[in-house]
Design a protein around this nucleic acid. Sequence first.
DNA 1: TAGATTGTTAATCGATTAACAATC
DNA 2: TAGATTGTTAATCGATTAACAATC
Lengths: 205, 205
Amino acid sequence: MPTIIPDIVISRLPIYLRALERLSQEGHEVTSSHELGKRLGISSAQIRKDLSHFGGFGKQGTGYRIPYLKDQLRQVLKVEQDWEIALIGAGDLGNAVARYRGFADRGFRIAYVFDNAPDKVGAHIDDFEVLPMDRLHETIVHNSIRIAMIAVPAEAAQIVADILVEAGIRAILNYAPINLVVPSDVRVQYIDPVIHLQRMTYYLP
Amino acid sequence: MPTIIPDIVISRLPIYLRALERLSQEGHEVTSSHELGKRLGISSAQIRKDLSHFGGFGKQGTGYRIPYLKDQLRQVLKVEQDWEIALIGAGDLGNAVARYRGFADRGFRIAYVFDNAPDKVGAHIDDFEVLPMDRLHETIVHNSIRIAMIAVPAEAAQIVADILVEAGIRAILNYAPINLVVPSDVRVQYIDPVIHLQRMTYYLP
DNA sequence: TAGATTGTTAATCGATTAACAATC
DNA sequence: TAGATTGTTAATCGATTAACAATC
């Protein structure tokens, strides 16, 4: 697409895609901006507007064919094939992330797990072996990995991020509760449950 | 405060608080909207505007005293004391969440863990015992729990949410990758790593 | 005092919504 | 055809930014 799409639009596409996958599972073949909006608590106008940035995916009178729209969104988001991910940190959280079944079929596959604790290196989590941190750089470079997840303690997160960026990582999902400093062409997303909780307590009596 | 504060402002306050905690740890006593903004990639004007909704926390010429501002933000967000949380789901993810040390000192404490798998009920995760699901309702009511975290498979999440709402839960942090339907006076926040990843792949070449 | 930085106002920018012609 | 729903335009709404007087 020629014009630049607002990031806030991009941020909603995965939500639409997730809802469409759910609708598929429930046996639906077709949906409408109205139905989707009601499920998601979003106005139907916004959904139509968002989708129209990428083309006309629907039909007047009938709505959207779910398999087609899913496919189109996957293409837009570039998740038709699986991206290999490097996971750094094999503690409780890293373990849980490594075992999480939810990445499959949604565009991602954890390919390598790293840690620097001597008692963890060489251990197995399901099918993969925990690799030592000194193999991090070479592994990323060699396998052209573009995405990494950080699941190390806050103190180590920035150091890990620096190595990742240096090795060519361009997208980081950071589970450590600190802000990372990275070059502007590297994207970072944060997962910090406390941030979400604090956002809700404001409204509690 | 009399006027209603935009939710987008509220959503940034926990980020500010986290950054202030970090600055404290690094030994800073004072900061400015400019310094804070540079760290967070937010304009200084926005930070001043956001904070000014709740009062004048700074001093012209010198900026903000960090301990004072932290304190004020904690009060605004209602996280000066710890909220007790019920965690539902003691699988890999539930385990990792239950063991996570990051809730302490940020306003939260996991108080109860539930699961319905016979091999998990009665087991211990650190100091707490996994309770059976049929004790969920009574435990929440009895202890006036207001916040819950859902870490069960997607198929079970809505059923669990219904029980939680019925029992008086008013804020839910949902780790299951589905949209929950709840009454409008119940807040839900979602943690789905795939959503964040898909938001980043759009920008990858 | 001079320099710095706040809190706030007004201007700008951008996102959401309402409405409707097009059309399946 | 009649009913439904899209894609899009224009209007509204809200959020961000720029600028500056106040003042530490």
